[in-house]
């Protein structure tokens, strides 16, 4: 499979339009209710890449207790998950696989770029084998900076996704900015 990330017709590119038969206000209403529910139980896919993944594990541990918010259900299979936490450095060798995993996730899906590496390559931007930001491969909803971000920061990032689901206009703000 050739990957061309500039091609808007490529699978999984950009658009988050749900495919549905119902249109209009009824659809919007149902979606709002569903989004409210989704926001309270995002299921992340277990996808640890590097150092940041250790902090992701800590966030699920007893001290930081991600399950307070309902996000602790880390699914080993992307097909059961709706949130991909990209925790770590994405390398050239890993990038096509990351894209595959993203494509396997069912819609609606959200991506959280955790740590400097996932945002822009972090300390390794100058390297010959590191992708300069996961947003060159998949669309990212929330960026959590840090090297590594603390577990609190990760939790805050996921709560930002919840806020985005409850108030879709937040997404517009980002896109128009």
């Amino acid at each position: 499979m050739e990957l061309n990330h500039n091609d808007p017709s490529a699978p999984g590119h950009g658009s988050k339009e749900p495919t549905t038969l119902i249109k209009g206000p009824l659809h919007d209403g149902i979606e709002a209710v569903l989004d409210f529910c989704r926001g309270n139980s995002l299921w992340p896919v277990t996808f640890g890449l590097a150092c940041c993944a250790i902090e992701m594990m800590s966030a699920g541990g007893a001290r930081y207790d991600l399950s307070r918010f309902g996000y602790e259900v880390f699914r080993p299979s992307p097909r059961q998950a709706d949130l991909m936490i990209v925790a770590g450095t994405v390398t050239d060798k890993m990038a096509p696989l990351l894209k595959t995993i993203y494509d396997q996730m069912p819609e609606p899906k959200y991506v959280l770029a955790m740590g400097g590496c996932a945002i822009c390559g972090g300390p390794f931007t100058d390297s010959y084998s590191v992708v300069q930001g996961v947003d060159t491969i998949v669309p990212v909803d929330v960026y959590v900076p840090g090297c590594p971000p603390r577990p609190e920061a990760l939790i805050d990032g996921i709560l930002k996704i919840r806020a985005m689901l409850r108030h879709p206009e937040l997404r517009e703000v980002r896109f128009n900015a």
């Binding site: 450095t89 060798k93 300390p123 390794f124 390297s127 010959y128 590191v130």
Partner: peptide
């Protein structure tokens, strides 16, 4: 090799002390 970040090469472009923080990214 899925996490090969090329740090040994990067070291050649940094000063000795600049590379110290990178070393902790080996075995994180």
């Amino acid at each position: 090799g899925y996490l090969h970040r090329g740090m040994e090469k990067m070291a050649e472009g940094l000063t000795f002390s600049q590379f110290t923080p990178y070393t902790s990214r080996f075995d994180y």
